[in-house]
Computed example of a mutant assay.
Amino acid sequence: MSAFNCQASLVITNQRIFTPDLNEHGTVFGGKILSVVDNSSSVAAMRLTRQTVVTATLDHIAFRHPFTLTQSMCAESYITGFGKRSLEVFTKIIGEDLTTSERFIGFHCFTTFVVPDAHYEIPYSTLVTTTDEQRALSAGYAQRQSQRRTEREGQQALLQAIDVDLPWDAKQD
């Protein structure tokens, strides 16, 4: 097995913010941001796997600063760790005020993807990082992966308590 360079998965997408992107507060709707994240991070994931991937989790989600009409959003996504069939992608969205050139971190999160083919195995053994940011985020991969495993186990009780019947289907006594 060989090494995969984190930089080879880097995806950078820019979007100008327009009126249809805004919510009633005049800031970008959170669902729009999550759509940008899923799109960008899935490209990074497929650059590692060259296989179809499915989104398993989004975590460490942080809406840090709102995006408004005179700004743009620059999403950067790249691989921060991987196992046999799963991988983690970090995405940050940098805002830029197009009238003043001021930049800020508006959003960041980690997305976990899984290759649905049970026979597939990621053909790399190590991840090569090249920037301080990549090294710092990749260093925390094992801990985040362990946290996700613990959370998955804890969710079993929650899933058993969730009712799938619709309220209007409830039987009346």
Rank of each mutant, 00 (worst) to 15 (best):
R149M: 09
T68M: 07
F113R: 05
R135V: 06
G140W: 00
P167L: 14
L34K: 15
L98Q: 04
F104T: 07
N23H: 11
W168H: 15
S35F: 15
D163H: 14
F29Y: 15
S86K: 09
K92D: 00
K84P: 04
Q160L: 11
T131M: 00
Q160G: 08
P66A: 07
V43D: 01
E88N: 07
Y120T: 05
K84S: 15
S40Q: 03
A56T: 11
C74E: 07
S125W: 01
G83M: 07
I17L: 07
N5M: 04
L48I: 09
E96G: 02
T52L: 11
E153M: 09
T112R: 09
E24H: 14
T91R: 02
F110T: 06
Q71F: 06
C74H: 06
E76A: 08
V89I: 15
Y124N: 02
Q156T: 11
P116Y: 08
I17S: 05
L137H: 00
L166H: 15
F110K: 04
T111C: 13
A118H: 13
V114H: 02
P116W: 10
L166T: 14
F107K: 07
L48H: 07
K92A: 07
V36K: 05
L87A: 01
Q145R: 14
Q71G: 07
A136T: 05
V28H: 02
C109L: 11
G26K: 07
L22W: 14
L22E: 08
P66W: 08
S72D: 00
W168R: 14
T13C: 05
L69K: 06
R148L: 10
V11H: 03
Q71M: 10
D169I: 10
T68Y: 02
G83V: 09
T112D: 00
D169V: 08
G106A: 14
L10N: 01
M1D: 00
T70V: 09
E76V: 11
M73H: 03
I12T: 12
I33H: 11
R85W: 04
Q147C: 08
R103G: 01
I61G: 01
I105V: 13
E102L: 08
E133Y: 14
A56C: 11
I79P: 01
F107I: 13
A3C: 05
C74I: 11
D97H: 05
Y78V: 05
M46R: 15
T99V: 09
R135A: 10
S9E: 00
T129W: 00
S9N: 05
N5H: 03
E151M: 11
L69M: 04
E121D: 13
C6R: 04
A62K: 15
T13I: 10
Q155V: 01
Q155H: 12
Q147L: 12
T19W: 13
V164W: 13
E102Q: 10
Q143C: 04
S40E: 02
S138Y: 01
T100H: 10
I61R: 03
F4Y: 04
P66Y: 08
T126N: 02
F82Y: 14
N5P: 03
D169S: 13
D132K: 07
I61V: 13
C74Q: 12
E24K: 15
N5W: 01
A62Q: 12
A139G: 06
P20S: 08
Q160N: 12
A157P: 02
E121L: 12
V115D: 03
R50N: 12
A161P: 01
F110Q: 05
L58S: 10
